[in-house]
Design a protein around this nucleic acid. Structure first.
Length: 787
RNA sequence: GCCGAGGUGGCGAAAUUGGUAGACGCGCUGGUCUUAGGAACCAGUGGGGUAACCCGUGGAGGUUCAAGUCCUCUCCUCGGCACCA
């Protein structure tokens, strides 16, 4: 039994002392920027999911470093945000204090796991020297009019007492605490991410290093939808309702127009409606329903006394308010064609409106999925035209034009909470909203006695008069500071840049260094960030690119997502269920190396896995065997099949780390070690150690030093497998008769068909099998097939 | 409903991309050593059969000398989005 505690403690200290993992400031030669998504330093320490993510990233970085790449592999802390504040409130300590404590624990635990970070580049989003630049970016957004003030109702979490972005919701509930979200009109700062919707979409096409899945999730989130805007005049109000549709060909089947209860159209129409009160009551009620458990039932109320004109037939069309029409999509208004849409059909049934079929089809109405070759009917001059071909014509006849709409909404960027970056703006009664000059950054988050959320829609900062009251940087008159803070996602939207140049006080990042290190060559983290952090970070990167601050508009060229580690037997780990696996405890009992190896061995990196406490014994057993081998070394040369296996292993391990299928790399290492059990040439053993080093950094370093090698194994070169050697020697060719494998023959590599046939003839059982048969197919080194 | 990823031994999983299915590990069975073993080592381990053989990658068809892999249909599981017009 090797003493993992002793070994791991000693080498942790040694590496720190020797700066083994320091990244020098280089700007030439091959580089590799390996970044794992930094954690929010919670009070419960690293969890097993962190361990899986960071070990996977670390192994990659270690291999690249050994392969001679200038490798940047940093770590930091996403320390602002609601949970930090909640934790501090619970423990009755200032979030600054608890954050510092938690960071210290996380850092210690990272070291325990043998993660090869360059700690000189450690960052924390809560560090004023860091958030100075977060604020700086905000000012650039403000200058570009990408940040704007809004008083529109926003998603309000009554429990967290703050406004939230759409990205922070899950099915109408707060993603964090599960509370039902309300709509509340509070003063907000918004970022115009919708201006970048198309670029965020187009950029995905260039990201070959992202999984199709991750890209698809983002496409879904952005939700681009191409259609037409069609005008429906309402003569009595002197107003025109623009409706959005992707199916203008159904326009002749229109039997009503419906607008969202929250849409802007309402005001213009309401003044002439005869039932104002009923409409107002409906709107109020639907607002409540909409945000809570969404009613699947379609409801609506007619605007009495006014009608819209059908843009082609000029017939009168009733106008309704209906809550199945969304204000945020398209124009907030639709035309209803009950014959060819489920919801319009349901609504028409409810309101007893006519249903006119306009596309041919034999099914019962509504016919939603029409055949590709379906033709129009009841559509005036378009009767008999293929519906696809009628779209543009009908839209044009109706005076419509093309329009694109998105599911993505502007980013609600203000939080009415304490623990975040202050938004660096000043409100002046004379000059309006004025940015804090760059040279006055950072706007420090003030010390405060009570940082509990006020719940009034104002941040706790608003209560600090001495901080709020300041002078206007433009006119010198009295001004008040903006009291909202930024969301947690702000700091993480650009942190990949700061690691490159973490101590720079004069610029966000040095241009030359940025051009060298960016983009991130491998970004590793959880899929749950696909619709928030990854969208936000790509958005900011594009803005910074437009400003010339960075030289590339996509920050992460390769994205590897890590699968969730479930509890033993499946399901979510939770404190309540008592099935939480603590990586540090595992490291205590079997060692970090065994933990690392097991985490990688269990399944491909991106796959969900369930923890299995029994399997880890196999990893430890393997390491034990490797350790024991050090006392049985021989001076024999490495040759024959052993040399072959050695090169196969080097190829397999390299490939496995490169592809994220670490599990096959681990098994290749085990195969190699098994092959070495009878005879262990020192040379082969050293290759095994170097191939194993990224997975088990402590044990391999210990043995390396035991063997009297100078320097760290982690600065040695990574073994390169030779394809020719890996393939040399005999190969087994399968012998198939009538499609069934009947045996194998061992033949020299690239043996000809004649040679293989000759060998089979010498083989008693097989020669009988194939006698009288003819060779149908011969694939060298693989198979010979008789019929 | 739309989109994405998957279904392979008792379990986690491999499979050079159409060429010996189940590598590697866990577990299990037998053995060696030991005062002892929930340690170590050796051997075995998809199912059926004494055997030759037969069956086997969610299911049903198909293409092929050859299919886990390709095609058609179908059933489940997980994940994302969803009154999106």
């Amino acid at each position: 039994m090797y003493d993992h505690k002793d070994i791991e403690r000693r080498w942790s200290l040694q590496w720190e002392k020797d700066n083994t993992y320091r990244t020098e400031d280089q700007t030439d030669g091959s580089k590799c920027y390996v970044l794992a998504m930094f954690p929010y330093p919670s009070g419960s320490g690293l969890h097993i999911g962190h361990a899986r993510t960071y070990v996977g990233a670390d192994i990659y970085a270690r291999m690249k470093r050994m392969q001679g790449f200038h490798t940047l592999h940093p770590m930091g802390w996403d320390a602002f945000g609601l949970p930090a504040e909640g934790y501090a409130l619970k423990n009755k300590k200032h979030p600054k204090e608890t954050t510092e404590e938690n960071i210290a624990v996380f850092k210690e635990q990272c070291m325990r796991l043998g993660l090869s970070y360059d700690w000189d580049r450690e960052i924390a989003t809560t560090d004023p020297a860091y958030y100075k630049w977060t604020q700086w970016i905000f000012l650039r957004l403000f200058e570009k009019r990408l940040a704007y003030e809004s008083h529109e109702p926003v998603n309000w979490c009554p429990s967290c007492k703050t406004g939230l972005a759409n990205e922070d919701l899950e099915g109408g509930r707060c993603e964090r605490c599960g509370s039902a979200i309300e709509k509340k009109p509070i003063r907000q700062w918004m970022l115009k991410i919708t201006d970048y919707a198309d670029r965020l979409l187009d950029g995905l096409e260039t990201l070959d290093g992202w999984s199709e899945y991750a890209k698809e999730v983002q496409r879904n989130w952005i939700g681009r939808s191409e259609g037409y805007r069609i005008p429906f005049a309402v003569p009595s109000c002197d107003y025109t309702i623009s409706v959005f549709t992707t199916r203008p060909e159904t326009l002749f089947g229109c039997s009503f127009v419906a607008i969202s209860p929250e849409s802007d159209h309402l005001q213009a129409l309401l003044k002439d409606a005869e039932n104002k009160d009923a409409v107002a009551a409906y709107c109020k009620q639907s607002e409540v329903l909409k945000v809570h458990e969404r009613e699947k039932e379609i409801t609506g109320v007619r605007l009495e006394g006014i009608v819209a004109k059908h843009p082609i037939t000029n017939s009168e069309v009733p106008i309704f308010i209906a809550d199945y029409v969304l204000a945020g999509h398209g124009t907030g208004a639709i035309f209803g064609c009950p014959a060819h849409d489920d919801r319009d059909f349901a609504f028409a049934s409810l309101q007893k409106l006519p249903v006119v079929q306009v596309i041919e089809g034999d099914d019962d109405l509504p016919i939603v999925d029409v055949a590709d070759d379906a033709r129009l009917m009841h559509s005036g001059s378009y009767d008999g035209v293929l519906f696809e071909e009628a779209k543009d014509g009908i839209a044009a006849d109706a005076g419509g034009e093309r329009m694109v709409t998105y599911r993505l909404q502007d980013w609600v960027f203000a939080r009415q909470r304490y623990w975040g970056e202050p938004i660096p703006l000043i409100h002046c009664s004379v000059c309006g909203v004025v940015p804090v000059p760059d040279e006055d950054l950072p706007v420090l988050l003030p010390e405060v006695a009570s940082y509990e959320p006020s719940g009034t829609g104002e941040s706790p900062l608003a209560a600090i008069d001495s901080w709020v009251n300041t002078t206007c940087p433009v006119c010198g008159g009295p001004g008040k500071r903006e009291t909202n803070t930024m969301p947690q996602w702000a700091g993480s939207s650009w942190y990949h840049l700061r690691y490159i140049d973490p101590h720079n006080d004069h610029a966000l990042v040095d241009k030359e260094k940025e051009r060298y290190w960016m983009p991130v060559d491998r970004y590793i983290g959880g899929m749950e960030h696909a619709t928030r952090h990854l969208i936000y970070a790509r958005f900011w990167q594009k803005v910074l690119y437009d400003l010339g601050v960075v030289g590339t508009d996509e920050p992460y060229s390769v994205l590897r997502t890590v699968g969730i580690v479930q509890a033993e037997g499946g399901g979510k780990m939770s404190k309540r269920a008592g099935n939480v696996v603590d990586p540090v405890k595992i490291a205590d009992t079997v060692g970090s190396d065994a933990l690392r190896l097991y985490l990688m061995q269990m399944a491909p990196f991106n796959q969900t896995v369930a923890w299995d406490g029994n399997q880890i014994a196999g990893a430890r057993r393997f390491l034990e065997r490797v350790y024991a081998m050090k006392d049985r070394l021989s001076d024999d040369p490495v040759q024959g099949s052993l040399l072959k296996v050695q090169h196969q292993t080097a190829i397999a391990v390299t490939e496995s780390i490169e592809s994220g299928k670490y599990n096959t790399g681990v098994s290749a290492l085990m195969v190699f070690s098994n092959a070495l059990q009878k005879q262990i040439p020192q040379e082969a053993y050293c290759v095994l150690l170097r191939l194993l080093a990224p997975f088990a950094p402590f044990l391999t370093e210990e043995v390396w030093s035991f063997l009297g090698k100078k320097g760290s194994i982690h600065t040695e070169s990574f073994p390169v497998g030779d394809q020719d050697i890996a393939k040399q020697g005999e190969v087994e060719v399968a012998v198939q008769v009538q499609g069934k494998v009947r045996g194998v023959v061992s033949v020299p590599r690239d043996a000809s068909q004649e040679a293989v046939v000759a060998l089979i003839a010498k083989h008693d059982a097989l020669s009988e099998r194939v006698s009288g048969r003819t060779v149908r197919v011969f694939v060298p080194n693989k198979i010979i097939s008789y019929v």
